[in-house]
Structure formats: C-alpha cells, structure tokens
Nucleic acid binder design. Structure first.
Lengths: 122, 122
DNA sequence: TCGAATCGACTACGCCTGTAATCGAAATCG
DNA sequence: CGATTTCGATTACAGGCGTAGTCGATTCGA
C-alpha cells in the first residue's frame, strides 16, 4: 500500500489536489509558481507518483490527464498521525500544549478553538 | 544551521534525549530494544549525527561520550511547525479541527484541551 | 509535405539514508 | 608478552530523491 510521498512530489500533489485532471504541462506551469523546476522534472515526479499509485492517469488523445488517487485529507491525516505518534505518544493534547508553549496563541485563537471544541462535544 | 535528522537517526536521538552522556555501546544496547540494528549501524548513525551537529562527543579515556546538542523540545517544535506550515497554513486551529473530523480526539482529550486553554488564558 | 514542437519513456547522476563490514590502534586478558 | 577484544574511522553498497537530458514517435503548423 501507499508508499511515502516525498517533499518534491508533494508540491505536485498540491497542484493536483487543487485542480484535476491536468496534463503534465499544466501541472508544470502551475507548479513553477512555487518551485523553479523544468518541465522534465515535473514529468519525472508525475511518473514516480503514478508508480506509487498516489495519482492515476488516463489517455486523452495523445497525452495523459493526471488525477490524485490519494485524497489530501487522508494524506494529511496520515502525516499528522505520524508526527503525533512519533513525538507525543499518540496523544494530541501534548501537541497542543507544546505549541501553546512555543508560539503564543492569541486570545482570539484560543476563543476560536474553544468554540470549535464546544461544537465538537455536541 | 541544523541539518535534518533522518528517521533512523531519530531513534538514536531519542535514546540520548532520555539519558546522556552515553558511549556508543550504551546507545546501541538501548536502541536495540526498538530496532534490530548492529553496533556498527548505531556507530554510523552517531557519527553522522556528530557531523550534523545534532549531538556532541567528548573523549572519556579512549572512547567517546555522546550527548545531544539539540534539545528534544526544539526539535519537536521544528517538526510540528513544519507540518502545520505545510498543511494547515501555519495555523493550529485547522489542525485541531482536522483531527477532530478524523475522530482522533476522544471526549477526554477535548476536556483536557479545554482545561489547558483555560489555564493559558490566565 | 517537411521541419518544429510536444509527448511519454528511459537514462543519468550526485547526494542522502539504511544498513553494515573492515581496518588500524589501543587496551585488556591470560 | 602475545592474543583477543574494543574503539573510532573509513569504506561499501543498494535504494530513494532531486533535478534533469535525451530519444523515438507523433502531431501541428506552414
């Protein structure tokens, strides 16, 4: 099952998560906004992602249209869980505490989170 | 500044964060509890960590004693921030919301977080 | 129709990572 | 003292990753 998606590949995934299906050229032109890559590089990343079954492609005339097979939400969930498992014994609370200590959450942030939690309880 | 610590190297860091200074052999015997590595492997990881300046060593007789140079807290903070920046636009709230949606938060977790937030407000 | 552009496939190549083995110097054991 | 163990240092090597170039086929433009 799902191999790990690398940092560079992730930039490609983000593009496809935002809009799909896209051709390799379309992906490249969108990805170039954030990374200075050649078309060839983007093509390599696309084919590696196909191999990993993170994205799929189907022929449209003589080129491929690429689409994500992995949902952003589930990928993000997996990565979040990895982090929390590795560093916080699988518990979210210590993460929140940790972040709270590090960066100061604004009073508004706190109120917002509290509201969210209250909603979640019902 | 600080190069990235790899997954395997992290297992070594965890040992040293728990107890230090330690000799290579000591680290190896502790790390073997979780990963099935040879002493040689642990030594390689130690020397790579020294190169990366994630740990330091000083001679004790004819061997080295190794100690972390990077604090666990600041490393974890960095990794957490990376994740939150990459996936949640740098804001904590969406992470909490996300985990809530994935149902990775128990009712107890929520109560605990609420208590924590209340403390933080004062 | 013929050259130019484009496509996907394949190849390249250096660095990092995981996982060790080996080597020479030193120390310890007998 | 000589043999064995133990250290750190050096070397190894395959696979993944970042970053691309090249090639053969196709299609498009003139």
């Amino acid at each position: 099952m799902s191999e790990r998606i690398s940092e560079a590949e992730l930039a490609v995934m983000e593009v496809l998560w935002e809009e799909s299906p896209l051709t390799a050229t379309d992906v490249a032109s969108r990805v170039v906004a954030s990374r200075d890559w050649s078309l060839a590089t983007v093509k390599t990343l696309l084919s590696r992602l196909v191999t990993k079954e993170a994205i799929g492609h189907h022929l449209d005339g003589r080129r491929f249209l690429y689409s994500p097979l992995v949902e952003r939400d589930s990928y993000v969930a997996g990565e979040s869980k990895r982090l929390i498992d590795r560093f916080f014994g699988g518990k979210l609370m210590p993460l929140v505490a940790h972040l709270a200590e590090q960066e100061e959450l604004s009073a508004d942030d706190i109120t917002e989170i509290e509201r969210l939690l209250r909603e979640m309880k019902s």
